[in-house]
């Protein structure tokens, strides 16, 4: 059962790097958010703190954040990633390389004995982090950048869950709040980018460099 969820998470990451529709991407992030935040509930002993935390995380990651992203999407009026810096077939190939790297890393880290989890479960968070960073680098739309950040953050969250680390209630809430504010602030930034430039193509945000000085742009 658990392995199945992890396989689904890995497949969803592959879908992310292959999907051109931003709406699909946001749906996938919502699914991953649910998987990542509810996973601690599959542990043997659950206390109230863990339960409340998982529910709050699920609420934020599957409902609030995607809704905020959809709002930014509507405001910016984008539907799909038209020109990724790296084409979709190549993206999938790179993702597969990333996946094999994650699996290799998982076998190398010798975490299975101490935590009692399978290699697949250790590879999944690494692959999520990889996918997140890959999305940030390879896609031009600002919105996909935030999606990438969220995938990356979910990967880290999942890593903590897989290692079975003790969650501290206040700190976890603080982290969730930070992510929430991050998406809010970047949503505002997207709104402004859209208004100023008539696009949210970060690939074209290149006016700041060493060669240009104010007044010569």
């Amino acid at each position: 059962m658990i392995n199945l969820i992890f396989a689904a998470v890995i497949l969803s990451c592959l879908m992310l790097s292959a999907s051109s529709r931003i709406k699909t991407c946001i749906h996938i992030v919502a699914f991953q958010g649910a998987a990542v935040s509810l996973l601690p509930l599959l542990r043997h002993h659950i206390d109230w703190e863990l339960l409340i935390l998982a529910l709050i995380a699920a609420l934020v990651k599957t409902l609030i954040l995607p809704l905020m992203l959809f709002r930014s999407m509507r405001i910016a009026g984008v539907r799909r990633e038209v020109e990724p810096l790296i084409s979709y077939p190549v993206s999938i190939a790179i993702s597969l390389c990333g996946l094999s790297f994650a699996l290799w890393l998982a076998t190398r880290l010798q975490l299975t004995e101490t935590t009692g989890v399978s290699h697949l479960m250790i590879a999944a968070p690494f692959f999520m982090m990889f996918t997140g960073l890959f999305l940030i680098i390879s896609r031009t739309k600002a919105l996909t950048g935030i999606v990438g950040y969220l995938v990356f953050e979910n990967g880290i969250y999942l890593f903590g869950g897989v290692l079975g680390l003790e969650h501290n209630f206040i700190v976890e809430l603080g982290i969730l709040l930070d992510v929430l504010v991050m998406v809010f602030v970047s949503g505002v930034a997207i709104f402004h980018i859209n208004r100023k430039f008539d696009h949210i193509d970060t690939g074209l945000l290149t006016s700041l460099s060493e060669d240009t000085v104010e007044g010569e742009r």
Binding site: Y149, M182, S186, L205, E214
Partner: peptide
């Protein structure tokens, strides 16, 4: 425009 670009880079 440029300050927006700087903000975005900083944030990400």
């Amino acid at each position: 425009h440029t300050s927006l670009e700087a903000t975005w880079k900083y944030l990400m």
